[in-house]
Design a protein around this nucleic acid. Structure first.
Lengths: 209, 209
DNA sequence: ATAAGCAGTGAATCACTATTCATTTCTTGT
DNA sequence: ACAAGAAATGAATAGTGATTCACTGCTTAT
């Protein structure tokens, strides 16, 4: 025997893998999934195209990992906002705001995750994550119903509507044709976020504020 | 001179064109845009692949026409529902119901139009039509505000939320993996549609019913 | 019947990239 | 220094399906 995997090698490989992930992330954050070419990613990461395939089964697989990592980060942020103090209404507002504001801060990545047309495998991931958001909201709505600050309703259905309303409201502002050209002023952003939230909270609580 | 286009020829060509359109429609209603192959369409229409290109610039072009026709039909139905008698709240409810029920009646086509990942050109069309729906709703909301049956609000924003909420609520039930396997019972459909509408109307009016 | 010109044909081509794999380069233990 | 194996390389390949275009066959007016 002569060669055996050492810690040094393990680390070096892990670094390469991470570099590939980072560069893919950068490519996606820059132009979405569709325009992210393997050759380009390899070039950025300073490896040969073949090397990518020593770390990932396929392009789709690599993308799926990026998708999951990036979306999980967002889901966690929303979960965090839902875990603060206050009644369910306050927490839901905070969560919706978190979601929308983060999306507007990284519009291209948000678009890629929320609305870019993607291959079936990624689309499946997307559905999973939309459900993940919906479930977080659903849970909060249920607490709200128990706490009596939200009227009784089909929590699951309402949560789906929340996800849809916020996603749709963001698609326009996030769409790359616009995002590339127009810079959305902070004031507009705030107005946008406020009015999304108002609609959603009215939908939930049945009361104006 | 010898050959000159006659009425007979014009009609024959128009028929071929229509056959191509019909068969494309059928293919899309059967498996969405992505799986609709030119060769298959040509086969169904009883023409050679090359003939398709005598009638349409490109595959994308053909699809765009199908997309526009099919979506316009839906938009018209919604517009119709909004044009009946009654106050704005009643008319909006009718419109939302129309939208949802028609989608559930033709789930694959609805999915193709609303949620299937498509090429950029079609995606652009889709955005246009989402705006078209939103504008119809927006107009109705404004009348509602004038009629005093809907409280003052950002009508444009609310209309976008309506489109998002209803689209998202339908995406799950429409998604082909499900649609192919599960048949959605009429009772479930009614419950689904009712709860979508309840959320949306609460979001608009700020009152429970 | 004939010639001019358009419509239809479909096998061959093209375009596009992800993916492969024979080869090279590097790492390790003796 | 060397041999055994692993990792990296990147030019060549492959898969896919839209699109082309040289040719065939109709239609029309004379």
């Amino acid at each position: 025997m002569a060669y055996r995997e050492t810690e040094k090698m393990r680390q070096r490989k892990a670094q390469a893998r991470q570099r590939i992930i980072d560069c893919t992330y950068e490519c996606v954050a820059n132009g979405g999934f569709r325009s992210a070419r393997i050759t380009r990613i390899a070039g950025l990461a300073g490896v040969a195209t073949g090397t990518i395939y020593r770390h990932f089964e396929s392009r789709e697989d690599l993308f799926a990992e990026i998708f999951r990592t990036a979306t999980q980060r967002e889901v966690d942020k929303v979960a965090e906002a839902l875990n603060t103090d206050g009644d369910a209404v306050v927490r839901l507002e905070a969560a919706l705001r978190q979601f929308a504001e983060r999306a507007l801060r990284g519009p291209m990545m948000a678009w890629a995750l929320i609305a870019e047309p993607v291959d079936p495998k990624l689309e499946e991931e997307r559905l999973v994550y939309r459900r993940a958001y919906a479930e977080l909201f659903e849970h909060a709505i249920r607490s709200g119903i128990e706490e009596d600050c939200i009227p009784d309703q089909d929590a699951r259905q309402s949560s789906t509507c929340l996800v849809g309303a916020i996603a749709e409201s963001l698609v326009g502002p996030l769409s790359p044709t616009l995002a590339g050209q127009i810079t959305i002023a902070d004031i507009d952003k705030n107005k946008l976020v406020d009015s999304i939230i108002r609609f959603c909270m009215q939908g939930l609580t049945g009361t104006r504020r």
